[in-house]
Simulated scan of single mutants.
Amino acid sequence: MVRAGLTVVRVTVAGADLADEVGLGQVTMSQVARRLGVRDASLYTHVRGLKDLQGRIALLAADEKSIQIAEATAGRAGRDALVAFANAWRAYAHRHPGRYLATQTPIEIAPELAAQAPGPRRAVALTYGMLRGYGLAEPDLTDAVRLLRSTFHGFVALEAAGGFTHERSPQQSWVRTLDALHALLEHWPAATEGHSS
């Protein structure tokens, strides 16, 4: 690749592409520099180091994922919105495993950078908005967000690791999982005394 036009965006995208290919934890500044055809030192004009790059990858991925979810769920409500949301989440994780992992891993991000990034805020708004269609309010809303995130991430993480070895296809289980989540959200249990601490 040519050296001209090196920008923070190009460095971040190169790092994100590399993360998808070799794994987020395997990305090094030297590898990114080689991919861009520059010396390692050239990268430090645009990013402060590996942790900064990882943070930028996470924010890029959060933005990409939230845009895809927004497009998938536009005009939908209830079960249709839940299924579209979940399928977009899973599809992004399959297509971009390194980027996806960055969105699920605690990564140090400079506060000023995080404050300017729309992706994480959009992701939260989309999730809460979709769940409000089920008539949930706080604190049930936050509990439901955590349930969905745990379920979706757990499923795609196990899938990526080859954790589903039963002859029944993961796709069949995914469909039934979404059916079960929809049924639960439609009949969210009322809080009972003694369950909160």
Rank of each mutant, 00 (worst) to 15 (best):
L50I: 15
L131F: 01
Y100I: 00
L136A: 06
P97S: 10
H153L: 02
F155N: 08
A110G: 09
H94K: 12
G154F: 09
F85L: 00
Y92F: 11
R76D: 02
S66W: 06
G135I: 01
V145F: 08
A161T: 01
A157E: 14
E71D: 13
A161V: 01
H96G: 03
L82I: 04
Q54D: 10
P120T: 12
A93Y: 04
I69D: 03
A72G: 01
E112W: 09
S150C: 13
R79P: 00
R149D: 14
Y44H: 14
L101N: 01
G23H: 12
A86F: 03
F155P: 05
I109T: 14
P139S: 09
A110E: 15
T142F: 09
K51L: 11
A84V: 12
A86M: 06
A61R: 01
I67D: 07
D40T: 14
E108R: 13
L158W: 11
E167S: 02
H94Y: 12
A125H: 06
D52R: 00
G49N: 08
M29Q: 11
D52I: 05
G154M: 04
Y128W: 04
R146V: 14
R95V: 03
G55S: 13
K51M: 14
K65I: 01
G98D: 09
Y92D: 03
R79L: 08
A114K: 12
V83F: 10
G133S: 02
I57C: 01
I57V: 15
P118K: 11
K65H: 02
I107C: 06
A81R: 02
A86Y: 05
T127L: 13
V27G: 05
S150T: 15
Q104C: 10
L43R: 11
Q68K: 02
A110M: 11
K51Y: 03
D140R: 11
R121F: 09
L101W: 05
L158E: 12
R48Y: 08
A157G: 00
S42Y: 12
H153P: 00
L158Q: 10
A84D: 02
F152R: 00
A161Y: 05
S150H: 14
L113T: 15
L158M: 15
G135P: 02
R35G: 07
